[in-house]
Structure formats: C-alpha cells, structure tokens
Computed example of a mutant assay.
Amino acid sequence: MQNRLLVDGSPLGNYPLRIRIRITAERWWLANLRGRSSRYVVQTPSMAAALQHRLGLAIPVIVSPFIPQDAAPRQSPARGDEHSFDFVYVASGEAHKNHVNLLEAWRILAEHGHRPSLALTLDTGANPPLEKKIAQLVRDKQVAVSNCGALTKEQVDELYHRARALIYPSGVESLGLPLIEASRHGLPILASEKDFVRDVVTPVETFDPDSPLSIARAVMRFMGASQAPTEVGTANDFLSDVVR
C-alpha cells in the first residue's frame, strides 16, 4: 500500500473529476477486499496505523521501507557556502502537495520584506493554475520563485546540491522520498508537522501545512528573522484602545 489517499479519508474536492472517481473506486475496492488479503505491506509506521484504522486493527501489516538503489548516498557530498536557491521543493503538482499554501506563504513573506528564493519542479504545462499563480506573484510581489520543470534523477540531485534547504509542505504521503533524498544530501528540512515526516527524518522547523502564515513563520525562523509574539496588555489597555 503506497497511496495514502486511499486510507486516510482526505477530502478530494481539489482533485480533477477523473482522479476523484478513481480514488473513490479504489477506496471502495480496498475496503471490500480486505477479507481476501492475507497481509498488507507498507513503508512507514504512520502508514500502518492509518491502514489499520481504516480497515480494522486486526489486519496483518508489515512495515518495510525501501528506496531506489540509486538514491542519494548516505555520505552527502561537500556543500559550499554559495547556493543558487534558498529553498527547494521537489514535488509534482497534485493537490495534496500543497503548492497553493506554499505560494501564499511566499506572498506573506514578501509583504514582510523577505524574498527568499524558491525552486519548484512542476511539470511545465501540466498545472496552468499554479503556473499562473507563480507568474502573478513574481510580477506583483517580486517574489523569487522559479519553476525548474520536471527533472531527471541526476538533475534533482544537482538541485539539492544547489539549495540551502528543503521545504516540504505536503499534507499526505506514504513515504516522502524527497525528504530522505534531501536528508542524505545534508540539507536542513522544513516540513509539515505530520507523522509521515518524522517517520523518516528530523526536520529543523515544522509548520501547519494548512496555514500559509505558519509556513511563512517557519521560514522566517529558519532565516533568523522571526517576529516577536503579540504583546498582551491589560484590561485597561484594551479599554483605552476601544474608547479612544
């Protein structure tokens, strides 16, 4: 079982109709064939927990993570001080990858005077709304967001090497291969505070993936530019603000 959308009950409203129909059918298929399966194999403890919650705790589940043999080596190459990008997000454009909230976070950062560079790997032409959003932000807010397009394995490795950190706002994953790849390249990781993240890596900063402001604040903390908390006054302070 590698598709977490089949087991966690995530809403499908942001997906194209064809995908909504397919996932709904596969969810039905999974639930109705559970009595004919001798065991299930997943890659992470949180995926096992989600599957058992969906189908019943009594089902046999084996946790057996794996990655491609040509994944980044455990000994990451030496990293220099110069980087082409502050942040990289290696992900396709499906709704659960959460690019919309990530781009909104970059808008918030720009409004606070921060414009870190961000590299994306969206397949060119496959996500017109996202590409339009990127172009609008670059034009109106002068944000430094670049779409590198779909990349080969070698090009992704080079992108990791050129980035300062990985940001990973995905909301649903069965494993999260880029998390492992970036970790093996020695990149600090800013990621959603989700179980699947901590199954495989230890991020330096986490955030609520459903909140663009939370994402922006995590980026600012990483950059050493975090904001002070809101100062809480007294009841008299409140009254003076209200009646002045």
Rank of each mutant, 00 (worst) to 15 (best):
L103V: 07
L103C: 08
E104V: 09
E104H: 09
A105D: 09
A105V: 12
W106A: 06
W106T: 12
L109C: 06
L109Y: 05
E111C: 03
G113N: 08
G113F: 10
H114P: 00
H114V: 13
R115P: 02
P116S: 13
P116I: 13
L118T: 08
L118P: 02
A119H: 00
A119W: 00
L120C: 00
L120K: 00
T121Y: 04
L122S: 02
D123H: 12
D123K: 14
T124M: 02
A126Q: 07
N127G: 00
N127M: 02
N127H: 06
P128C: 12
E131D: 05
K132F: 05
K132Q: 11
K133F: 00
A135Q: 08
Q136G: 12
L137A: 08
L137F: 04
L137G: 13
L137V: 08
V138F: 00
R139W: 01
R139Y: 04
R139P: 00
K141H: 13
K141L: 01
Q142F: 00
A144T: 11
A144Q: 05
A144N: 11
V145F: 06
V145E: 09
S146Y: 12
S146R: 12
C148K: 04
C148D: 01
C148H: 09
G149E: 01
G149I: 03
A150N: 10
A150F: 09
L151V: 06
T152L: 06
T152G: 10
K153T: 13
K153F: 12
K153H: 15
E154V: 14
V156M: 11
D157A: 15
E158T: 15
L159Q: 03
L159K: 02
Y160D: 02
A163C: 09
A163N: 06
R164C: 07
A165C: 10
A165F: 09
L166K: 12
L166D: 12
I167C: 05
I167Y: 06
I167K: 05
I167V: 15
